[in-house]
Write a protein that binds this DNA or RNA. Structure first.
Length: 651
RNA sequence: GCCGGCGUAGCUCAGUGGUAGAGCAACGGUUUCGUAAACCGUAGGUCGGUGGUUCAAUCCCACUCGCCGGCUCCA
């Protein structure tokens, strides 16, 4: 403890304040006054800034213990974990150079410069060594250097990447490093007090990653891992990873025979099989019907257009990387469309517009083609041909906030219908490179904020993350496994109205420029379908199930009866099938179950005699014996009330 | 695109320098069955493609196509 006699006042998150001699460490304070808090504490926040438990306190401050339960605590925990991994790697492979290793959302990684990739056996060895390091319970200490000292230090240790990092630092600020045993890493910290604080530790995968993420730089070897304060928490996390694998839309798509992507057709190009196509049709029917109800006009546009159109829109200049090569048609060049907006603009421009017509809302399920590098393609999530649930709104400046507000409400309504009940909104403001005047940006950004406030939506601001042509709102949904997906987006566009010289005649009889909004609710139908598939684990709600009920006769004695049941179902608009195969009921149920049919209607002699069906749901629950009419009522009641008959039926 | 791994029957996967197997599915029979897999049999593959090494290649090598994981959550 410090010999400094003066005392300081420390306040705690519970509102209490206590006096301590200056020079105490955060740990001493917690130990003496808040013993019960120390238990899971791995670091502290001093005046809101995360610090080590060993930090010496010399002035009045607010002290808050950090545990794994907070995001900041997790970061410290995982960051210390990755140091342990790095130490283990250095001990196993002394020739590696360490580079960077941050905590990430669900764990951590560290990038190493090594002459070869790590094998699964290497990972086992490293993991075993890490366990040993944890067992050694090495004290983790902080040390400060001047920039030059730090450079000399890491140079002497042969850590060229660390030297490179330090060289980028400001000249006169101290540089910190953390030491545990023989291992020293350049690090801002804070860290846990000793390696023994890590209770459950697991390495997951290894992969190549470029130094500083730039493909012109050398390839490093990255190892991913994760850690938790208890083995149970780690096991739970691993089980969740298993569940994610089980729900992979590529796997389910094959198992449920929904779609395929084939070599002969081409990567990133989707073939929709009948059942997948039916689900898509149901989604699209719902979409179209709701757009008409929400005051949109539906349009269609071609898949190619003259190259000149893309010159005017600026895509050729700014979006070329994602566009396929143009093709000659007679004497001019044509271009496969990467976006729908120019077409909707051309519809707007097809005649003179009056302010009375605005807002105009054009919607289209428009299929676009974009060149994606082969390495980034991923099932339905990242493809080369996909359908946007696109719309472009043209409005007067005074209508902007109301339009955006309506779009936000529409988004929530649609997402809820598809079973997503949690979302986050992000407002992105002006980036460095942008078009349009500052006033335009301010007005539009304010309109977006107003729409968010009006709808009482909580949101976060992403400063500078807007598109160059205008501010935007992105909506991220949470799926059943707690993963976030960004689907919906609302973007103001100052660029295209200008490029295409859009106008309307206002009350003053003069020509004015309308504001244009791009928006998508689901983003891409393909991707949204993939997200839905994983969200429901293949068990689509009844209104989206390609087969809603399957009639399963016990033996072929009930063929006729089964057929009559099927016909009743079909007549009522229920999507039903009949399993007439010469198989035992157990097998028929098993297969219906595997194909996620929501209702199985078993019919045997008993049902035949009483004119009923025995109803079993896909979760294994039996609903007992009832008439077909009763089953149909149950099924009907499962269709969300917002859906009209039309959108819950395929035809 | 780059790094690594992978590519064997419709699907899931074994396998070996001496021209290939299993389960399920398919097909043909038998069975007529009560809530997650009845039984027997038949058929099915230029082992992703091209070229090379070799007496001999599905296996080794090169190229190529595709798939999987990863590629600035910045000490």
């Amino acid at each position: 403890m410090s010999i400094d006699q003066s005392s300081i006042h420390l306040s705690f998150p519970d509102g209490t304040t206590q006096e301590f001699p200056a020079g105490v460490t955060a740990r001493d304070v917690l130990e003496q006054s808040k013993g019960e808090w120390l238990k899971d504490t791995i670091a502290v926040k001093i005046d809101g800034v995360p610090k080590d438990l060993r930090t010496v306190l010399r002035q009045d401050s607010v002290l808050e213990p950090l545990t794994f339960s907070s995001d900041e605590g997790k970061e410290v925990y995982r960051h210390s974990s990755t140091h342990i991994m790095a130490q283990a790697v250095k001990e196993c492979f002394p020739s590696v150079q360490i580079t960077i290793g941050p905590a990430i959302e669900e764990g951590f990684f560290y990038d190493f410069a090594f002459e070869r990739p790590f094998t699964p056996e290497d990972l086992e060895r490293i993991e075993a060594r890490a366990a040993e390091i944890i067992k050694r319970d090495l004290t983790i200490t902080r040390r400060e250097f001047t920039k030059q000292e730090a450079i000399d230090f890491f140079k002497a240790r042969g850590e060229a990447y660390k030297v490179e990092i330090i060289e980028g630092f400001p000249d006169h600020e101290p540089v910190s490093a953390y030491t545990q045993g023989e291992f020293v890493d350049l690090c801002r910290g804070p860290h846990i007090p000793s390696t023994g604080h890590i209770k459950a530790f697991k390495l997951l995968t290894s992969a190549g990653a470029y130094w500083r993420g730039d493909e012109r730089n050398p390839m490093l070897q990255r190892i991913y891992g994760t850690s938790f304060p208890t083995q149970e928490a780690l096991d739970k996390h691993l089980a969740n990873l298993e569940e994610i694998k089980k729900r992979d839309h590529r796997k389910l798509g094959k198992e449920l025979d929904l779609f395929s992507i084939q070599d002969e057709t081409g990567p990133g190009l989707i073939l929709w099989h009948p059942k997948g196509a039916l689900i898509r049709l149901l989604i699209e029917n719902f979409w179209r019907e709701q757009h008409v109800k929400h005051g949109y006009d539906l349009v269609y546009s071609p898949h190619v257009a003259r190259l000149d159109l893309w010159k005017t829109s600026g895509h050729l200049e700014y979006y070329r990387e994602n566009m396929y090569a143009s093709m000659p048609v007679e004497s001019s060049e044509y271009q496969l469309k990467p976006m729908n907006c120019p077409f909707h603009i051309m519809v707007y421009k097809s005649h003179l517009r009056s302010y009375r017509e605005l807002p105009i809302r054009y919607g289209e399920l428009g299929t676009v083609y974009r060149y994606e590098r082969s390495g980034v393609l991923h099932g339905l999530m990242r493809v080369r041909g996909f359908t946007q649930d696109d719309a472009h709104l043209f409005c007067r400046p005074d209508q902007l906030a109301a339009e955006v507000s309506n779009v936000l409400k529409f988004i929530i309504f649609v997402l809820q219908t598809f079973g997503f009940h949690e979302c986050e909104m992000y407002l992105s403001t002006r980036p460095e490179k942008s078009v349009g005047s500052i006033e335009q940006w301010e007005q539009a950004t304010q309109a977006l904020e107003q729409a968010l406030t009006d709808g009482q939506f909580a949101y976060k601001v992403d400063p500078g993350e807007g598109v160059f042509y205008g501010p935007k709102i992105d909506v991220k949904i949470k799926d059943a496994l707690g993963r976030s997906w960004q689907c919906s987006t609302v973007q103001v566009d100052f660029n295209n109205p200008n490029r295409f010289e859009l106008s309307y005649i206002a009350e003053d009889g003069k020509s004015h420029q309308p504001i244009m909004i791009h928006r998508a609710l689901m983003g891409s139908i393909e991707r949204f379908f993939g997200i839905l598939l994983e969200h429901y684990g293949g068990a689509f709600p009844t209104w989206l199930s390609p087969v809603q009920a399957k009639v399963l006769p016990i033996s072929d004695k009930q063929q006729e009866y089964g057929t009559s049941i099927l016909n009743k179902l079909l007549k009522d608009g229920c999507r039903a099938e009949l399993d007439l195969r010469n198989e035992k009921i157990g097998l028929k149920i098993r297969e219906a179950e595997k194909s996620k049919v929501p209702y199985m209607l078993v019919v045997g002699d008993r049902e035949n005699q009483s004119g009923t069906v025995s109803v079993r749901k896909r979760n294994g629950k039996s609903l007992g014996t009832m008439s077909v009419e009763e089953v149909l009522t149950i099924i009907r009641n499962e269709i969300p009330s917002v859906l009209s008959c039309d959108s819950s039926r395929p035809v």
